[in-house]
C-alpha cells in the first residue's frame, strides 16, 4: 500500500541500510508530497531513526538513492532541517537556550563567521514561537525534558528550511505543548513547508498527520492517513517481526557477506 506522488519533495529509491553489516532497512521505496505533515510510525527497532539519519546522510546507504527537492541532499542542505533525538547530546554542555538556537543559523552563516544581529533576532523569534522566551539565558541542563525538546525545535525553526525531519520531537513534552507545537507545524505546512515526524502515539497520529509512513524494517505503507491507519496495516506493522527476514539479517551480520553483489 504505497502511494507514489508526482513532484515529490522527497524521493527514496530502493534504499537498503545496514548497521554492522546487518540490514536494518530493506529496499525502501517511497515518495512524499509537498506541504504535508507526515508521521513515521512503527514499533521499536523498526528503523525509523535510521531512515531519517540515512536521508540526512548521517549513516551510509548500502544501496539505492535519496533525492530531496529532486536533487542530491548536498545541493539543498540549506533547505533541509534535522531535529535529532534529545538523548543524542549531552545537555550538561555549557550553553544557554539562546546559544543552542543560534546554532540553527550556522548553516546560513557558513564557516568562520560569527552570528550577526539579524541571526540573533531570528533566533529570538523562534524561541518565542516555542514559548521559551523566559528561559533565554537559562543553562540548558536546568531545563525540563520537554523544554529541552522545545529548544531543539526552536533551533530547527531558526534554520528557515523548507523540509523538516524531526526524530521524536514529542518525547517528554506535555500534552498542551505538544498540541501547540503541532498547530505551529501545521501552519508551516500551509505555507508550503513539509514536516516529517517520527511519532509513537497511535491515538493522536490520525489527528496530527495528513500522511502516514508505516515502517517495520521494510516499508509497510505510505499514503494519506485515512488509507494507511487501518487495522490491517497496523497489524502488519506491529504484528511481530518477519522472522525469516530477521534471521537472514543475523547471518549477514556474522558472515563476511557483501550487502550487494558487486557487478
Amino acid at each position: 500500500m504505497v502511494h507514489q506522488v508526482e513532484d515529490a519533495v522527497l524521493e527514496i529509491h530502493d534504499l537498503t541500510v545496514t548497521y554492522n553489516k546487518k540490514p536494518v532497512l530493506w529496499d525502501i521505496d517511497l515518495t512524499l508530497p509537498k506541504g504535508s505533515i507526515i508521521g513515521i510510525i512503527g514499533p521499536n527497532g523498526a528503523g525509523k531513526s535510521t531512515l531519517i539519519k540515512s536521508i540526512m546522510g548521517l549513516v551510509p546507504n548500502s544501496s539505492g538513492y535519496i533525492k530531496v527537492f529532486d536533487k542530491e541532499l548536498n545541493k539543498v542542505r540549506n533547505k533541509v532541517s534535522y531535529v535529532p533525538q534529545k538523548e543524542s547530546v549531552d545537555w550538561d554542555f555549557p550553553a544557554s537556550v539562546l546559544d543552542v538556537v543560534l546554532m540553527g543559523r550556522y548553516s546560513k552563516l557558513g564557516l568562520f563567521k560569527r552570528p550577526r544581529k539579524a541571526d540573533r533576532e531570528v533566533a529570538l523569534d523562534c524561541i518565542r514561537k516555542v514559548g521559551m522566551e523566559q528561559f533565554l539565558n537559562r543553562q540548558i541542563s536546568q531545563l525540563s525534558g520537554g523544554q529541552q525538546q522545545r529548544v531543539f525545535i526552536a533551533r530547527a525553526l531558526a534554520q528557515e528550511a523548507d523540509i523538516y525531519f524531526m526524530d521524536e520531537p514529542f518525547a517528554g513534552v506535555d500534552a498542551a505543548t505538544e498540541r501547540a507545537i503541532i498547530t505551529m507545524l501545521r501552519e508551516m505546512t500551509e505555507k508550503g513547508k513539509t514536516v516529517i515526524v517520527i511519532h509513537h502515539d497511535l491515538q493522536s497520529a490520525s489527528e496530527y498527520f495528513n500522511w502516514i509512513v508505516l515502517l517495520n524494517m521494510r516499508l509497510v505503507a505510505s499514503g494519506p492517513t485515512a488509507l494507511t491507519l487501518t487495522p490491517e496495516l497496523l497489524q502488519e506493522t506491529y504484528g511481530g517481526k518477519l522472522t525469516l527476514l530477521a534471521e537472514v539479517g543475523n547471518l549477514m551480520e556474522k558472515g563476511e557477506f557483501p550487502t550487494r553483489d558487486k557487478r
Binding site: M56, N74, N78, P84, M103, F112
Partner: peptide, 22 residues
C-alpha cells in the same frame, strides 16, 4: 579563535553539524 563556533558545534551536537553540511 577562528573556529570557535565550529568546534563548539561539533563538541555539542556532531550529527546536527553534519546535517547542516559542516
Amino acid at each position: 579563535f577562528l573556529l570557535f563556533k565550529e568546534l563548539t558545534l561539533i563538541s555539542f551536537d556532531g550529527a546536527f553539524a553534519q546535517s547542516i553540511g559542516f
